[in-house]
Design a protein around this nucleic acid. Structure first.
Lengths: 223, 223
DNA sequence: GCGGACGACCTTACGTTGTAAGTCGACCGT
DNA sequence: ACGGTCGACTTACAACGTAAGGTCGTCCGC
């Protein structure tokens, strides 16, 4: 009779890491916790992953791979639409796996799967008439957006709807512009009041960048 | 005779944390290491900060405070210039303190000092004729840029100039566009070859965003 | 059939981390 | 003088990453 448990493998270790990160946060991704997920001991993981940092790098690569996978299915008429939809697909992955953006940003070496992403992107842009320099800049612009769009950075309270009234009062006093703006743009989301609809704001910024890139492309083409 | 060592204080603890992070990286910021910097024991720090996470949050706030400090001194004629210079000042802080961007992005609650930053920004934009909605979007666009601009994300090797030729060869084969682009935009920096001049790329993206925001402002004003 | 090499997994153990709990001494108002 | 308070130190523990070595099932040459 073969062993009752499925054999470990690098892929299973990475998958377990993703599962733990998704359900309990990145901080819960410890060798012991991942091992427990696979019903084995921590040290067994080292037969498939050289270290915890390498496991985290593999998680980052997995996130990029998911983006590549989604992005590959996208078809569009013009480059703006193609790139916009790819960026939105990337953002979807970042939202589904909240650990992904931070982890990708923390890698010293960009994961191989992210290269595939850039290859797709540069291909699209080149085909649309971008010179290499502009394509390069476009990658930086879009990359900083997708990976850097910080969902919570501006939200005064992190989802908690218990704003200390004293703090709010002094804030309104010392930050009149911010207070007025926050009161003005508040809107309803899922039945709860919220200042930010990050999806809409992401699309807005994306539009700015894509618009500017197209304008620059035309400028260079006619120069 | 008074005690020979200066008394601890929250400010001194935070300053020591910044010093350690600057010289040895964020990972070296442990309670014991910071305590050693102050010539005391780890547990003594808990009289001034409630936990390590709180210390890290204080470091993030300190980084934002540095930005506010630099940004307050900036004067400019039009809003574009004012905001551009403030963003560049913020980026300078991120470059001087490489731990800052990641730490700020990791905070669940945005640090108080970052509110001050947004207040400055909204004030400038409002004065320039932005409505509250557009100012709000502008903050998200610029914030995602400043905090998210990832310096190394696209660099194939993290500064190491030992690109495995085998990997490079297969990469060139599977990623023709990327390989061509990389070869085309390579340039010299500090006597070393490099693909990316992140400062220039930051300014380019910043220009795109500022341009788009000004265009949108005019569009709304004349609508 | 069988010995022995090998590889996947487990056990044990060490150093480091964050921090709870308790101790000690210096200062301060009375 | 003296108890209270408070800041720093000491001790201790659980959880972490991982080095070193052990165990056991599987397969290969004979």
């Amino acid at each position: 009779m073969p062993p009752v448990r499925e054999a470990l493998s690098r892929d299973r270790v990475v998958a377990a890491g993703v599962a733990v990160a998704d359900t309990e946060g990145l901080a819960a991704v410890t060798m012991r916790r991942v091992a427990a997920e696979l019903d084995c001991e921590a040290m067994s993981l080292y037969h498939h992953v050289p270290s915890k940092d390498a496991l985290l790098a593999a998680l980052a690569d997995e996130a990029a791979r998911l983006v590549v996978q989604e992005a590959a299915a996208i078809t569009a008429d013009d480059w703006v639409d193609a790139v916009r939809r790819r960026c939105l697909a990337a953002r979807d992955v970042m939202v589904r796996h909240p650990w992904a953006a931070g982890l990708l940003a923390a890698q010293q070496q960009s994961p191989p799967s992210s290269w595939a992403l850039y290859e797709q992107l540069v291909g699209t842009l080149t085909e649309a008439g971008f010179d290499d320099d502009l394509a390069h800049r476009a990658i930086h612009s879009l990359g900083s957006m997708v990976f850097g769009f910080s969902t919570e950075l501006f939200e005064p309270d992190g989802g908690d709807s218990t704003p200390d009234p004293e703090i709010m009062a002094t804030m309104a006093q010392h930050m009149p512009n911010l207070a007025r703006m926050a009161a003005s743009v508040v809107h309803e989301v899922d039945g709860a009041l919220s200042v930010c609809d990050t999806r809409a704001e992401f699309e807005f910024t994306l539009g700015l960048v894509l618009d500017g890139l197209e304008r620059e492309r035309v400028r260079r083409a006619t120069a």
